[in-house]
Design a protein around this nucleic acid. Sequence first.
DNA 1: TGAGTTGACATACGCATCGTATGCGACTAT
DNA 2: ATAGTCGCATACGATGCGTATGTCAACTCA
Lengths: 197, 197
Amino acid sequence: MSGKSRAETMEENRAKILSAARKTFAEKGFAAASMDELTADVGLTRGALYHNFGDKKGLLAAVVAQVDGEMAARALAIGVRHENEWDALLAEGIAYIELAQEPEVQRIVLLDGPAYLGDPSQWPSQDACLQLTERTLTRLIADGVVKPVDAGAAARLLTGAALNAASWVAASKDPATALPQAIESFEALATGLLAKR
Amino acid sequence: MSGKSRAETMEENRAKILSAARKTFAEKGFAAASMDELTADVGLTRGALYHNFGDKKGLLAAVVAQVDGEMAARALAIGVRHENEWDALLAEGIAYIELAQEPEVQRIVLLDGPAYLGDPSQWPSQDACLQLTERTLTRLIADGVVKPVDAGAAARLLTGAALNAASWVAASKDPATALPQAIESFEALATGLLAKR
DNA sequence: TGAGTTGACATACGCATCGTATGCGACTAT
DNA sequence: ATAGTCGCATACGATGCGTATGTCAACTCA
């Protein structure tokens, strides 16, 4: 019983390519990544790639969805630990700033993703991070904690601020000191959404 | 005296290529833009391109600097009309949201620029928008109007929020109604930076 | 003023890469 | 057993980039 079913090896090869792409895209960027090299590194050819993902952009989309999903899951796990919904929102935002420090996220999700797949709000994966904060914001607005602004717009602004903060920290000369400064500013900005003072 | 000097035609050809690049990059994106076509459209060859701009990325950098500079100039002109520095900052931010609605800015400065040239804070042009708001913020912090946060971080967060808002509006189904919502949220967020309430 | 030099651009070449069309072996169903 | 399908490899054509080399006009200087 050592043989693998057809569907099993199929999934294995898909995963191999996805994993290799995730690494290569993060290191060299999407444009500079050669599909010949990438597939050869896992013992396959481009034939497998085009069969599984359609084309090069299809592979990027799959990688983005994976990384994006993991980030949302981690942020959610952090936010859920807070009883107060507002504190959870803040914690999630700060989590984004910290999670987006990884070169993988920086390069794939924040740089190449938008450039080749278009604006995140149009992605099939629908930017998991955005949806998460939008739902949280909607509840907070209903509870009167947050000003009655459009939740979609506020969510986009908030995550946009957080992710830009992450890029700023990652690109700064001294990330260790830049990170707390970014978080401080983020918290200050966020409090602007509060209804009561 | 109808003859043009060597330096004159040089500048003319540079401007021709730059103008064509600005249009093509905005319409088809950086990756899909063929340098053969682009130069042929203005009656030149790639030889002129590589002589004037070094390589394809060099051309993108020049275009980005131009568009970025124009945007900062327009935002500054708007902000300067306000006597109150804080109102000027808000007006500048809102101006970014509106100015960044143009497909040129969206595609070139916000998508392809970061992807191919790296984080804006590392650009030679040093993201004119960022510098502008950072200086304004520094003055406001010195005056005690804004909380004593790091001006660089806050500037990045603020412009990041504004530019993401612009992308959100541009990608939304109904930009006409999304724009005021984005501005409303932006103003709310910005007030979080105020020291006194 | 005329020969030499420089500079701006064109031409030509090699190399890499992508997408597709085609081929082949393994598995499956009847 | 055989025909058909599926997953992937191989082969091909088409672009596009960067560089090395060529060329001709403009500028310099004696």
